[in-house]
Design a protein around this nucleic acid. Sequence first.
DNA 1: ACCTGAACACCGTTCAAGT
DNA 2: ACCTGAACACCGTTCAAGT
Lengths: 202, 202
Amino acid sequence: MSKNYHHGSLRQALIEAALPVLKKKGIVGLSLRELAAELGVSHGAPYRHFKNKTALLEAIAVTGFNALQDICRKAMQDFPDDPRQQLYQAGMDYIFYVARNPEIADLMFRPGLSREESNTELQQAVNSAVGSLAAIIENGKQRKLYGDHQTMDLVLTSLSTVHGLAMFIAGGMLIDPASPESSIEALGKRVYNILLHGMAGE
Amino acid sequence: MSKNYHHGSLRQALIEAALPVLKKKGIVGLSLRELAAELGVSHGAPYRHFKNKTALLEAIAVTGFNALQDICRKAMQDFPDDPRQQLYQAGMDYIFYVARNPEIADLMFRPGLSREESNTELQQAVNSAVGSLAAIIENGKQRKLYGDHQTMDLVLTSLSTVHGLAMFIAGGMLIDPASPESSIEALGKRVYNILLHGMAGE
DNA sequence: ACCTGAACACCGTTCAAGT
DNA sequence: ACCTGAACACCGTTCAAGT
């Protein structure tokens, strides 16, 4: 192999190199040229893998949805007979995932990123992740856990709530960013409880 | 007034000029120079009002939180004796606000924008808006609507849910972007119902 | 198939100078 | 106080050419 060629898969390397930059400097501060230089590759090279800067950001969003899917699947495997625990575990794991990777979650539910083309890969990753969450909800419905609400409404509500809470925590908004994991878990538990039994007292 | 000086307040003009650009081209596609040119002002002029591009984006986020505060206040005024209706109305108004202004909402809950300084103006706008929502919740608590949950937990849960749902709608994810207002309202009503009475059947 | 390197048109940001 | 316009160091993106 020529020493002027990047050794492994440049596409994946670009995604990984982008994460710490996004974390420190945000979307505005990220540049493809900087990533290329860091990886010892010419500034034109990234364009063999991403048609533009936005496409790289979308690829990172895809990894977030893939992580959400993995989290849902793992929760189902870990508690095959307890759909309520599946939902709780998946939600909590997702919150900790976002807390660890705020720069990824920050790209996930963004109408403003690709206002043009729909990006089928991203759309597909979203659908897969949502499908896994829907499976958890369906498991619960078979056990008569969730009344007669539509699955889609339950998915939307729970995903919105968990993702929103995760972003509050990740952004340090309203919540002390220095909170220990135990207090984040306690907060997650209280919110999960409200979600499950309602804001209104019984 | 000199014809080389912008007539009114350039700061506000920049914010307003940025909105359609953000809507069409997203954060990555926005440039201060383009805005300056559009407003007939030199490319250095924006820096008298914003210390950089991120500061402009944060100022736009502030307008979103101000809108949320206005929405909450209006709901309290419109239904002074019905805290439950206050919450429903505020939530629904916010959803329609986000549907009309996705490019603003897109900037509101973003850990990745200003990873550096905390931006006190933004932090203050967040606190004010959250305070108004908390007031609505407190009104409900005085009427014994919300059990014994902590106000902050109820605020976090409801705001997360409503904002998340709004972003799904605004981004056309999971929801047909061509949905008429009536079906958005119907969806909002179902989610509000789940939020109020819980995912679990009674 | 994947990368280089020149080329182009554009940016963000700073700053002395103007009014 | 607010804006101009030059200046600097950088970008995103394209494309012929190389391996």
